[in-house]
Design a protein around this nucleic acid. Sequence first.
DNA 1: CTGTTAGCGCGTTCAT
DNA 2: ATGAACGCGCTAACAG
Lengths: 358, 358
Amino acid sequence: MGTAGRRDETSTGTDVAPRVRRRPTQADVARQAGVSVSIVSAVINDRQYGNIRVSDATRQRVRKAVQELGYAPNLAARGLAGGTNRLIGVFTFQRIFPLAKEDFFYEFLVGVEEAAEEEGYNLLLLTAAKDKAGQRSLYPEGTNGMQLADGGVLAGWDESADEIRRLAAEAYPFVFIGRREIPGVELSYVAADYRSATRELTDRILRSGRTVAFVRGSSAPELVPGRQQGFREALGASPTNQRDDATFATLPPEPSLLDYAQLVTWASEHSVDCLLVENSRHAVGVDEVARSRPSGARLQVLSLGGAPEEEAAARLGGLVIPRREMGREAVRLLVRLITEPGAGPQRTTLPVEVHVPA
Amino acid sequence: MGTAGRRDETSTGTDVAPRVRRRPTQADVARQAGVSVSIVSAVINDRQYGNIRVSDATRQRVRKAVQELGYAPNLAARGLAGGTNRLIGVFTFQRIFPLAKEDFFYEFLVGVEEAAEEEGYNLLLLTAAKDKAGQRSLYPEGTNGMQLADGGVLAGWDESADEIRRLAAEAYPFVFIGRREIPGVELSYVAADYRSATRELTDRILRSGRTVAFVRGSSAPELVPGRQQGFREALGASPTNQRDDATFATLPPEPSLLDYAQLVTWASEHSVDCLLVENSRHAVGVDEVARSRPSGARLQVLSLGGAPEEEAAARLGGLVIPRREMGREAVRLLVRLITEPGAGPQRTTLPVEVHVPA
DNA sequence: CTGTTAGCGCGTTCAT
DNA sequence: ATGAACGCGCTAACAG
């Protein structure tokens, strides 16, 4: 039996050239062990199809053959037969690895990777997905790039809701990181409760008898409403309502030191004690400027968009966004979407920690 | 002709239940376009098998059908059939997104993503690849996890050369980031010339009449020899050879502030003017300690492992490792390996910049 | 307890 | 210019 199927190549008699050694297949193992492929498959996957029952002796022989041949299953074939490829697509409307490390996606990806590892999925980064204009697109050349994976995690700011609508219409499983509301579509997403957290933070400040202003800055649009709403709610609930002109300030998209300086001056002129800055990077910048001034020493700067791992923002305090956990949760939701096709849209809202340094 | 092949499911008459919407296949596209699958395949891959020649009109119809159906090729099927997926696998022996952002892989990945985008490849991050011990492995459960990708970029420190040998034996195209030498295998890699750079840096310091010590710290093993060699070369070439006991120091894997402090003290006791620290993070720590002491003010700390984007390390000066460019080059080499199967091992050594602040 | 066989979706050769 | 048919390696239903 060990002598069955001796030839190690499909030598047709001619052309026995030094061909590249083909990887052994289940058929090779079956031949070597003197059994059929279904037995091999059953042993390897430790499964019992229908009424298949493999004797221990056979099992041993198959295992032995596997060892001798150095057989390893072909993932592609397995995926083909199973209809799934254990791949999670990751699409960001902006570059995934931006040069500024402290940028938005990084912490999400940490969580996505962790969860994917736990769930046994590989990650497919859609980096090649660009339309003719060179913009990142879910439908480069009109075709769905995400279809390559079993499902997708999306992040970033998209200008056109159309692509997302189309994705949803195709019943393709995907989960957004960050709240997304698109009329007429039941989206799955993992959100963070910025509203409550901002409200609580503002409340605390007001209760301590100080005045506070909200500094708008460039940050992902879907985050903005929640935070401003929470801020307004706190103001409305406050017995000591603040003057309007000292309530909001806005930073340009790419603020310079001068912009920060002007903001600090503005705060001082309006007797603002505390600044709630949307963007954590800007918060750090504003704080540095403030502390460089004798007059600005009493101005407290809080970040509304810090990630738990951002050291500088953590020092300042403010909102600590659970980015990593959001990434993890997005993968979990997606896996549910993939494995339970019947399930409706999945949504999770994670709490946002309020952290004020002592 | 548009009316050919009308039925949109293989409706056998019975059982037309609300089946889960299957992903469209080439056959679906073919039916929709009123052509055969081979035509679809030819159009999609923009190829001309044997004597196949597709008319422009047909080509258009196929493209249209693809769009309408949202067709995307099945990666597994393609891989099985011997096709290519325009996918680059990325495998790191350690976690890709470590919590410490300043860690090793990040800057590499920035480059990898950039180049992949330029070359029109997507990235497959092998996150699921763990063996039973939970360790990352190229052959989890004995299978090559990279099979779906056309080739792979590897990074990180591997304990077992066996897996790499096996990968090479399979004639699977892959490129290492960082120099790798494994006996009996012709590896492709992109390296950085640490040796020359360290030598030049050391030379400069010695020429200015100062004494210098080399501080070993935890860093990727493959980088170590080059730098120490360069250092030794400079010492050997120097007319004013240094005392041996003041030449090398070693930091523990996870140094504490105390370790940094002891190092600074050591330097002071041995009249060392300048410290060459292997690990940029440690360099920053040591420098902070040194500057906090009045006596340590004259001690210069240089980093031997900084990335161009690391602000703190850049301030110190030392070696600037072109991590991003290494990532880019790795992808370029890999693409060559993929598209020109005949080509031998690809190797590039990138220059390392020496940067000493004024 | 085990063997045979039909797909999975796609690339490619050959016949038309 | 186009369609039919085969095989890639594997899973799983089915027939012994």
